[in-house]
Amino acid sequence: MKVNRELIVRTALQLLDDIGLEELTLRKLAARLGIQAPTLYWHFSSKQALIDDMATTILVEASGDLAPARPGDDWTAWVMAFGQGIRRRLLQYRDGGRVVAGSRLTNALFHEAAERIGAQLLEAGLSHRQAIVLMSTVYTFTIGFVVEEQAVFPRPGERSPAYDIAQRNQALDAGKFPLMRKAGPVLFDQFDRRYRESVKLVIEGARASASR
């Protein structure tokens, strides 16, 4: 089989869904491709180099879904769409959050989408620094949020037994931890709602900062 970087990355993403990030190795990927490991090392010198390309592919795929459904003058809608678009794409891949976390992008295609969103913030009156800090905050929060979300649900609808809410509450004394006992359903069951609420808090902070 004649392989190229795109085929390798696409196959790696498929293998990721099958075995997860911990088990993903260049040797297992070579076996999936039906090639010898040295051939794969000619394209990628390390697992991290491969992950960088995988992360780039995931974010580039998200690039077309980062604008609000009805673009307008409301810059907050652009910020929310930016975060939600990234989260949706990360969730399409097993360990998607962990793949992207700390990775280095290997091309500028995602930056092109981010530039368009940043332009909306500048046009709305945010300073360059405010726009950059806001977008980077939403970006890093989203990745961390998805990492935690995928720890609870490694696959859609498949809850890890380590996050059983009833068992969690049994370990927490009701008299000593009344708030934490009520936190389980919020933290481990309502990810869509909590994500929106969290980003709204970030946006309101940015709005207050921009008005000063």
Rank of each mutant, 00 (worst) to 15 (best):
L7W: 08
T11P: 00
A12D: 04
K28Y: 02
Q36E: 13
A37M: 07
A37V: 12
F44S: 08
S45K: 15
Q48A: 10
D53V: 00
A55G: 06
E61F: 05
S63E: 03
S63A: 14
D65N: 07
A67K: 09
A67D: 15
W75S: 12
T76V: 08
F82G: 07
F82M: 12
R89N: 05
L90K: 13
Y93C: 02
R94C: 11
G96T: 12
G96P: 10
G97H: 05
R98G: 00
V99M: 08
A101H: 15
R104N: 08
A113L: 04
A124P: 02
G125N: 02
S127M: 09
H128A: 11
R129T: 12
R129Q: 11
T137Q: 10
F141H: 15
I143E: 09
F145L: 06
F145Q: 04
V147K: 01
A151N: 13
A151E: 08
F153E: 03
G157M: 12
R159G: 04
A162E: 15
D164K: 11
Q167D: 13
R168I: 12
N169H: 07
L172R: 03
D173R: 02
A174C: 13
R181Q: 09
R181V: 09
R181I: 08
G184S: 11
G184A: 15
R193I: 13
Y195F: 15
K200W: 15
I203V: 14
R207D: 13
R207C: 07
